[in-house]
């Protein structure tokens, strides 16, 4: 699993990346009440806002950590957005993206680097 400074995580399985927000981000947001997941088929570029996560107090854009085509959005988040709080780095994933440039994955932080980054925040 790799991480961004914007608190997204990515896991790569073949050429399909699963994307979500980190446990740290979920905790900072508080109770998540709604997630707007991207449409399947949408082309996203690394750094684009591609989803929105809402708590009662804030609506935040989630940026694509990696470029590609959205192939699946997590259907569970429609009816149970609280999954993001309960299981941010597993069941609370946002979308799966068919990756166009796997090298982008390697350029992201690993967990140790992300933990160290959080310490600096």
């Amino acid at each position: 699993m790799r991480f961004t400074k914007d608190h997204e995580w990515v896991e790569l399985d073949g050429d399909v990346a699963t994307i979500g927000i980190t446990a740290h981000a979920a905790e900072q947001l508080g109770d998540v009440v709604f997630v707007e997941t991207p449409e399947v088929g949408k082309q996203v570029k690394a750094g684009d806002a591609f989803a929105v996560v809402e708590s009662v107090k804030a609506a935040s854009d989630v940026y694509a950590p990696i470029s590609g085509e959205v192939v699946e959005a997590n259907p569970e988040l429609d009816s149970a957005p609280e999954t993001v709080n309960a299981s941010p780095e597993a069941g609370g994933w946002f979308a799966k993206v068919k990756v166009s440039d796997p090298a982008q994955f390697e350029a992201l932080m690993d967990r140790d680097a992300y933990e160290a980054f959080l310490q600096t925040q």
Binding site: H7, I21, A25, L29, G30, V56, K57, S60
Partner: peptide, 10 residues
């Protein structure tokens, strides 16, 4: 993601 943690418990 953008993080706005200023706010209120809900």
């Amino acid at each position: 993601m953008t993080m706005n943690t200023v706010g209120r418990p809900t």
